[in-house]
Write a protein that binds this DNA or RNA. Structure first.
Lengths: 143, 143
DNA sequence: CTATATTGGTTCGTAACACAAACTATACCG
DNA sequence: CGGTATAGTTTGTGTTACGAACCAATATAG
């Protein structure tokens, strides 16, 4: 049952959004269980393999930079992240996970896997691989 | 480059989470542009094709039911949603979109499509269809 | 049938979140 | 070098989110 390509695109966007809603619902719960907010959890996940500046992190999270000061401050107070002077710009700070933050991120990762895996049970191994590859392709910049 | 199946599963979960993070970042921005919070936006999207009770909606959003009273109250005050007595349980209220809420949801849907579509450009039409189908398969209950 | 347990939704207290405006110091460009 | 842009912070305001407590409706057990 293929659709016209324009329709197909819109259906894909909707499927991506629905998937994001479902995952977000799960993440909300896991965050609360770990005494984190959804945004704190997302920040930890993003920082697993990045060291962005404050405004870079704001952009990745889709938030205003004024929001980040408090967010990072509180995470810093909890020992989950630290800040360092950016070498690229004397005004900027990089944000990165501490060892404690890495531990917390791994715990969360485990919880997320446990919660999300059952939902993938209806797919064959080949389908799972295809889905993963296609999603990863979408995360890569085209250029 | 296939992996062991267990690894493949974990990579898929990670890809799903990364996708959700990226979409959520976009949704955060669109919500702010429409003077909504992320959670308000998610609620509108969920209510497009559902009429859940308050606690049903809390579950769909992954939030505590105590959070829903204020959330729905404010959306009701803005004329985006309304409540009706549930026929299934004399204590319960259903929540549903008003006409205004439907209009708002359509505007948001348009914005989301505009923002997300460019990210799908690197996939062929067939790949897009495959991705959509696999995502939809995941949203369906297996039973 | 009655007493007890459970549950749907609300209220309240508390901390956190998120935006916009304003600000300061640093960086950039003509 | 001077004017403009920008990274990050602070402040004000409204919203969000959890847990505890509560009340009324519903479910359950004897």
């Amino acid at each position: 049952m293929p659709h016209r390509d324009e329709t197909e695109q819109l259906l894909l966007v909707d499927a991506l959004a629905q998937s994001a809603f479902a995952i977000t619902s799960i993440l909300n719960r896991i965050a609360a269980d770990n005494e984190l907010s959804l945004t704190q959890l997302r920040m930890l996940a993003i920082l697993r393999d990045r060291r962005p500046t404050m405004s870079g992190l704001a952009s990745l999270l889709g938030l205003e930079k004024s929001t980040l000061s408090g967010l990072v401050e509180r995470a810093e107070t909890r020992g989950l992240v630290a800040r360092g002077r950016s070498s690229a710009d004397g005004r900027a700070f990089d944000v990165f996970l501490t060892e404690e933050g890495r531990r917390q991120a791994r715990l969360i990762e485990r919880d997320v896997q446990q919660a999300v895996l059952p939902g993938t049970a209806g797919l064959s191994a080949a389908e799972r691989e295809t889905l993963r590859e296609l999603l990863e392709r979408m995360q890569r910049p085209a250029a």
